[in-house]
Design a protein around this nucleic acid. Structure first.
Lengths: 335, 335
DNA sequence: GTGAAAGCGCTAACAC
DNA sequence: GTGTTAGCGCTTTCAC
């Protein structure tokens, strides 16, 4: 079995003390250039690498951060993770990924797990099911650095980064209106999510700004966020069972968009209407029927979140002022 | 700042020695039931959790494993990670995800990183660019447990799990033949990948078995595996510039399938032909033009790989016999 | 049945 | 400029 070289090994081989070796390796100024060179050369020769576990124990820093997402097999989140990873990699951090699968229970347990794993901080996107934030608040109050991204919690004072969902929804809705559609239905995500409210508000505001009265029957929430095809189908069917039927659809998430398309395909006679859906899938352009879409800057969001978290972790002084950064989304009109 | 409780804290509070507390927590039989109960109760009360870093240092085990994939933002890999995570979670392991982005250079560096991070083992799917396996072989010969999944390396003796690519490709090709198509072109992945050869062989074998002569002009490799749209477009255009044009397409990967659809859309006059592509996207059924697809059991593959790795890590005796498990794929005919 | 001491690999006072 | 020592939190001989 493999046995890694240690500082002691080097010290013994070179007839030096471990501390001298340690200092030489860290390029301390109190060590002679001579000695440094000898140590460095020998270290390279025997392929020495400092043991991060020992370092962690000493420094009470693990150089790893936890990332909590609903599901990695979701384009938006995997792209975010890509962004997180790009910063982490460059700054010497590991990321430990944990999935809530949008379950409160798993979120609570996994967050606890992460904390016990002595991560230096946590990047967090809330599960769709979560309404009680006590588990997060406790961790936060104990001093665990936390940065929220995408699905944020307003009540907890820390850094946050998310899409400017209000604006994105406003623009998407207004675009439909400008194109001449007036009966725009909105398929919304789980009601407790921050992004759900923000997008709904943007949608309402666009209607209002254009003199269209908001009709509650034209909004349906999907508690399972598109994981449950039946739920989405019911919502879609609801819209088209109304006396005044929608002439366009604004859909609040990727999963919902996809599930809606499937639901629409089942309806007879076939319905064709313009759709704008949030989507970060890499095949949105190939879907049929074609949909227009709101694309979030997922990679950038991951980058920003990780940079914020590192700032939080590495800050010498407690931080009092917290930024909530909003990223613009891109609206793609495809008709 | 947060300060976690330690065994010493408990010992001091209860006027016991650290060793007694340690034993009590681990439910050692040499400790009196009385004492155990007191310790356990107090530990719960102050929310004690054993420090995994200290444990790692002591045991030379980190309970974390590295996972090397080309890209998490790829349905197949994210589903695999899901499977890996499900086992890891249950067995108390963390997974540290690393992406090669199909670059040999990054693969080599990141693998080194993982090793230095003292992971207990590595789950590995090769980058498309890699032709030199020295970095893996070195690690392997030093005793690092490695399990290959999906894109495997035949030459390294260890556990492997992958799709039965030969069979999947054979069945897909034969299905096209049975449906009456004879001029079946094959768009292949990077030539150095194990899966590329296996799928190509299956394709050839199906032709042979059905009395069709293999035409090399009907196979094109894409070194960038679909990351480079131009490359795919060239390949597709090549097929349709031939005197005898293909009447069906068999495509070896998800990315390639998508890129081909885009390329086909550009061709004038429009070409409609049946396509079977490998795809683990969750929207394959909504693509236009509609394609038939080979779906790999990505989640199961992740599970199997992680189980194998844990077996390897936790095995008392050196393992001599290594299994290469083949998973069946599902063929979906969609016309 | 419980305690004392050593050690995992590393670093940082504190010597000299 | 270099060595000695102690300690991060935990387990594990070895005593008693």
């Amino acid at each position: 079995m493999f046995k890694a070289a240690t500082i002691k090994d080097i010290a013994r081989a070179l007839s030096l003390s471990p501390s001298t070796v340690s200092r030489a390796l860290r390029d301390s100024h109190e060590i002679g250039e001579q000695t440094k060179k000898i140590v460095l050369d020998y270290a390279r020769q025997i392929n020495y690498h400092t043991n991060p576990i020992a370092l962690s124990l000493k420094n009470k820093r693990s150089y790893s951060v936890g990332v909590m997402v609903a599901d990695v097999a979701n384009s938006f989140f995997s792209q975010t993770i890509n962004g997180i990873e790009s910063v982490a990699y460059q700054k010497g951090y590991n990321i430990i990924i944990s999935q809530s699968h949008d379950s409160y229970e798993r979120e609570r347990i996994n967050i606890e797990h992460l904390a016990n794993r002595s991560v230096d901080g946590i990047l967090m996107s809330m599960s769709a099911q979560t309404t009680d934030y006590a588990h997060i608040e406790q961790l936060h109050s104990q001093g665990m650095p936390i940065v929220f991204f995408d699905r944020i919690v307003d009540a907890i004072p820390t850094f946050k980064v998310t899409t400017d969902n209000f604006k994105a929804a406003f623009d998407a809705t207004e675009l439909l209106i400008k194109k001449g559609f007036k009966q725009i239905a909105h398929l919304a995500n789980a009601p407790q999510l921050s992004i759900t409210t923000e997008r709904l508000d943007g949608y309402k505001a666009a209607l209002l700004a254009n003199g269209i009265i908001y009709n509650p029957e034209f909004t349906r929430f999907c508690a399972a966020g598109g994981r449950d095809a039946d739920e989405v189908e019911h919502a879609v069917n609801h819209f088209f069972a109304l006396n005044t039927k929608p002439d366009a659809l604004f859909i609040a998430s990727d999963r919902l968009s996809v599930a809606s398309l499937r639901a629409l395909r089942k309806i007879e006679p076939a319905i064709a209407l313009p759709i704008i859906g949030f989507s970060n899938s890499d095949v949105t352009d190939l879907l049929s029927p074609q949909i227009s879409f709101v694309r979030q800057k997922a990679f950038d969001m991951g980058k920003a979140a990780m940079e914020m978290l590192i700032a939080l972790i590495e800050s010498k002084h407690p931080i009092e002022e917290f930024e909530t950064r909003l990223l613009d989304a891109e609206l793609h009109w495809e008709y």
